[in-house]
């Protein structure tokens, strides 16, 4: 192996810059290029704008409660405005009105935004990490591992988990964090595994995988350096769709009141429902419309970003 010591005649190897700096520049450039493609997608841009808007909206909560709003009145859970009858329609002091027990709707909406982000992103992250790992392993190793994970995915896909959680929730009330984790894990072993496995399978039969094997790469090296990087764009895309499904599940279960969450968009509608105001929904619109709209727009925003990313990830979809 002595001949492998550099026999360089043009002097010692010299990169103009340290390698990490070059890699960082390359990453930035590729992000910029992808952003250029993403920008072309109107629906994707609309999604981004909506997410930013929700972000600002959510970030305003700590500012408002610490400066403008009196916590006694505006606290989303224990606040109460003694100056008026409840539920009160939108007015100068309560821009979106109050709920049946005298809490400010706008404050509740703002307070919940941050948690919805946390819930959605956390569970989507868990989903994608599990989905990518399981999908790649199933594709690469095949055989028993593949069969095992695919059957689990089938079970999760076919089993009605939301109704089950409603039933289970009647006995054990899940709090926020365990719920996010359960949603993430269910998603990760469910449908996304099948999609990511298909992608990993198509990557793993490419000649460059053979080339890596001939180069001497171990299974671990091939999975980590070749298959996962080529599956990740799709994982990232499905992460957006996972956010949507996590938020929707949370809203559904909160509406049934089976989650141990003090406040969320689903909870707001639940409150209106248990107090009986949804029977006259047109008159008491402010009790359900803001939260409903927020859920819809929030889910739509991530879905739209996913659609935009789809054009980055699948060049075939691009408009020429």
């Amino acid at each position: 192996m002595n001949e492998l010591v550099p026999t360089h005649e043009t002097g010692p190897a010299s990169l103009a810059e340290p390698i990490w700096k070059i890699r960082w520049k390359l990453t930035r450039r590729s992000l910029r290029q992808n952003w250029e493609i993403f920008k072309e997608s109107r629906i994707g841009m609309l999604g981004i704008i909506l997410i930013i808007a929700f972000g600002i909206f959510g970030a305003m909560w700590p500012i408002m409660i610490n400066t403008v709003w009196d916590p006694m009145v505006y606290d989303p859970v224990v606040g109460f405005d003694p100056m008026m009858m409840h539920p009160s329609p939108p007015s100068g002091t309560h821009l979106l009105g109050t709920d049946p027990i005298g809490r400010d709707i706008l404050a509740q909406l703002m307070h919940s935004t941050g948690r919805e982000f946390l819930l959605g992103v956390l569970s989507a992250l868990i989903t994608v990490v599990i989905g990518t790992a399981v999908g790649t392993a199933a594709a690469y190793y095949g055989g028993l591992i593949d069969t095992f994970f695919m059957r689990i995915a089938d079970i999760i896909l076919l089993f009605p988990f939301i109704p089950l959680l409603v039933v289970v929730g009647a006995m054990v009330k899940l709090s926020f964090l365990p719920f996010a984790i359960i949603m993430g894990v269910l998603g990760g072993f469910g449908g996304i595994t099948i999609i990511l496995k298909a992608q990993a399978l198509s990557v793993s039969v490419r000649p460059y995988i053979d080339a890596a094997r001939v180069a001497g790469g171990s299974n671990f090296h091939i999975i980590v350096s070749h298959i996962i990087p080529n599956v990740l764009p799709l994982s990232f895309l499905y992460m957006m769709f996972s956010v949507t499904s996590a938020i929707l599940s949370e809203a559904t279960l909160s509406f049934f009141g089976v989650l141990n969450i003090d406040m969320s968009w689903g909870m707001m509608i639940h409150t209106a429902d248990v107090a009986g105001y949804l029977f006259d929904f047109a008159r008491y619109w402010w009790l359900w419309a803001p939260a409903g709209l927020a859920i819809t727009l929030f889910c739509a925003a991530f879905y739209m970003v996913g659609r935009g990313l789809d054009e980055v990830v699948n060049p075939r979809l691009r408009k020429r």
């Binding site: 492998l4 550099p6 890596a212 180069a215 790469g217």
Partner: peptide, 21 residues
């Protein structure tokens, strides 16, 4: 550089020189 990396041949500078050569 991949065959050099996976087989643990040389330092980073040596690999780089090999690749350039």
């Amino acid at each position: 550089a991949e065959p050099l990396n996976v087989n643990g041949i040389g330092t980073f500078e040596e690999r780089e020189a090999q690749v350039e050569e």
